[in-house]
Nucleic acid binder design. Structure first.
Lengths: 221, 221
DNA sequence: TATAAAAGTTAAGTATGCTTAACAAATATA
DNA sequence: TATATTTGTTAAGCATACTTAACTTTTATA
């Protein structure tokens, strides 16, 4: 049995390795991700290593063992299923689910999570468009799609941004593009790959770079 | 904000005072209820007293303040709503819900519990027939009803027993009365208040004393 | 390649919430 | 009422999981 804290370390490690595409993580990086001091990470790593959950040598890189990775995926599965539950069944908004799901993800009951999965109809993605690992621990590693990957002439809903620098966010704001805004690609210019889109019922042109930084999900018919 | 542990103390205190009908509880009694040592209770009581959650003097009785009682009721509300959710929506059986609900009751989110309440249709009682406190903290202090309080010619479902001595349990067994068994009172004998019942499709006579020790809930139409 | 900066570790200390052991107060019984 | 029993408290210690401060190793740069 893992403590909440241990589960959070494993989850953070998996997130870091997936997001950065690197196999190994550093102590400081992990500490920043967990919002704790590096010293605490050093101590915990010793414990996780003894439990065979991480591979790690003093002053060396940190990575998950297969056992650790499986546990991390299970936590992410729980997190995303709860988020789905909160949004779909309990009228939670997109932005409210995270903190509650951070608590719910640590509830220990295999039956609970499998029944919840069934109750929700075995969803493939959570409300943010992130893939939900299956009961067997299979995670579809494709991250959520961006506008640049969307199909032409189908409606998508804005989920968030890939780049959260203030310059970009202000730009997005100026474009009247918000979470929930409906976007449809009308055409792509061969010249510079600019996209002609309908965004919130207005026709606009956006650059390829812009489209690559907006996360979207397909709108339900 | 209360810790899980603090919430458990308050909940146990409320349960003890309700079940025993006494306003005050002792350290040993509370320790037994929480399955910890009395020494730990002494330490925690100091903390709860400082937080204005319990009334207590060294070597004296323990009772909840109105603030403490309100908090305890809130925990019980959460516990019973989660139990209802697990049974009604997730195919959990009567006996599986308790341990999971013990974890879920500590999730901190007012919105979560109010939305859950709404989702469940504002249930008045949990799957064990225990009353669910309202969002305002009103608890119907009547405990679950026994067979002796049931209406004539309506169907009830056996929830459990009031007396769990082995003599009684064996007697109940012999009567082919189990959790889930459907019971309907056909008549009550004025002479000795014996009840003529249909229990699991068989007509039987049971004593008043027997009927007073069987918890039931109304069967849904 | 010497050294400064960054990254990581260890040691000592804190808070929570338990434990056991020793002790004190209250209650029951002879 | 003296004493034995029960009940409750305090003190010291443990585990978890953090912190800060001092230190070590690695890496980057002059």
């Amino acid at each position: 049995m893992l403590s909440n804290s241990e589960e959070n370390y494993l989850k953070a490690l998996l997130h870091l390795t997936l997001e950065r595409g690197q196999a190994e993580t550093g102590t400081n990086e992990l500490a920043a991700s967990l919002e704790i001091k590096p010293a605490a990470v050093s101590l915990m790593l010793k414990k996780l290593k003894e439990k065979n959950l991480v591979l790690y040598k003093k002053y060396g890189g940190i990575s998950l063992t297969s056992v650790g990775k499986k546990a991390a995926i299970e936590v992410i599965r729980k997190h995303r299923l709860w988020e789905t539950f909160l949004c779909e069944k309990l009228d939670f908004s997109w932005s409210e689910v995270h903190t509650v799901a951070e608590q719910l993800e640590h509830i220990q009951s295999k039956k609970l999570i499998d029944e919840l999965d069934k109750f929700l109809g075995f969803p493939k993605v959570d409300p943010h468009g992130e893939p939900i690992p299956s009961a067997k621990g299979e995670l579809d590693f494709r991250s959520k799609i961006t506008l640049s990957e969307a199909e032409i002439k189908k409606s998508y809903i804005v989920l968030g941004v890939k780049d959260d620098s203030s310059e970009f966010l202000e730009y997005v704001d100026k474009m009247e593009c918000k979470i929930g805004t409906v976007i449809k690609i009308l055409s792509v210019q061969p010249f510079d790959e600019s996209l002609e889109v309908v965004m919130g019922n207005k026709k606009k042109m956006v650059t390829k770079k812009f489209a690559q930084s907006i996360f979207v999900k397909k709108k339900k018919a």
